[in-house]
């Protein structure tokens, strides 16, 4: 139910006095708005010159302990699991690689606006866990949030450059379709009903990004020839950068190693 408009207007006026109603957007290096000039052509991947960067994100050091999550506060969440649920903050795969690292081309691409994929990215809430835990989307690409659980959730992104919002989603409710118009690495999204729930969304204004999975590898396909700064981000271990130069149709390897 919407808040009565008179009440909201009055509170907004009060908030303007006290807080400036949230203030303006914070523009950071990674959160800059990259709207191209109106005359700029839409950029697309050119198969004739497309280069590839592949690699692995490895982990060196003592393997982090995955802490157990207690879902006792919401029986519907606890009932969804027969095994103990462990934190996804830092997962080292059996082959010594790091899962859920977000790898993207930070700089070096030609100026312009890249074509936005029509496919939606899906973030589901299953067993009171966001699935996937880390995901990449292109600016203005549609993201659909699902609630497959038999319980209420609220979806609450905490961006620095994009607009903050907080909406409830009832059990198995209608999907919520959202977009993030500004590049931002990364946007944490919380559920305040269940404080262990968190997903990180990497919003990039081009299609060259990947998230490492169970083998810790990544592939950035379709790059134009050029010199790039490739960055790997991890929720717990921060960021690392590598310089890579690729020629047309060339494949290069760029491995990252995070230390615990």
């Amino acid at each position: 139910m919407r808040t009565p408009s008179i009440l909201s207007t009055g509170l907004c006026a009060l908030a303007l006095v006290l807080t400036g109603c949230g203030g303006g957007e914070t523009k950071t290096e990674e959160g800059r708005s990259k709207a191209a000039p109106a005359s700029a052509a839409t950029l697309r991947i050119d198969p004739a010159t497309a280069a590839t960067v592949t690699g692995k994100v490895t982990f060196t050091g003592e393997k982090p302990v995955r802490r157990p999550i207690s879902m006792d506060s919401t029986p519907a969440c606890a009932r969804a699991h027969t095994e103990p649920v462990l934190s996804e903050e830092a997962i080292v795969n059996d082959n010594g690689t790091l899962r859920n690292a977000f790898v993207w081309v930070k700089s070096g691409l030609p100026d312009g606006t890249w074509e936005v994929p029509r496919e939606m990215v899906t973030i589901d809430q299953v067993g009171c866990i966001y699935v996937p835990h880390v995901v990449g989307v292109q600016t203005n690409q549609e993201v659909q949030f699902l609630n497959s659980d038999p319980t209420n959730h609220n979806i609450h992104p905490l961006p620095r450059a994009n607009r903050e919002w907080n909406e409830s989603q009832p059990p198995k409710g209608e999907p919520k379709i959202k977009t993030f118009p500004k590049q931002e690495i990364m946007i944490p999204i919380k559920c305040n009903v269940h404080p262990w729930m968190r997903v990180y969304v990497g919003v990039v204004d081009h299609p060259f990004f990947a998230v490492t999975g169970e083998d810790g590898s990544f592939t950035l396909k379709g790059l134009p020839p050029g010199q790039y700064t490739v960055q790997a981000w991890h929720e717990k271990y921060g960021t690392q950068e590598i310089q890579v130069t690729v020629a047309a149709q060339e494949s290069k390897t760029a491995d990252f190693d995070f230390k615990g």
Binding site: T3, L11, L14, A15, L18, T19, C21, G22, H156, W165
Partner: peptide
């Protein structure tokens, strides 16, 4: 109410 509607602005 303002903390909820305006998503926890610190001064409020």
């Amino acid at each position: 109410g303002m903390t909820v509607i305006f998503m926890l602005p610190k001064p409020v």
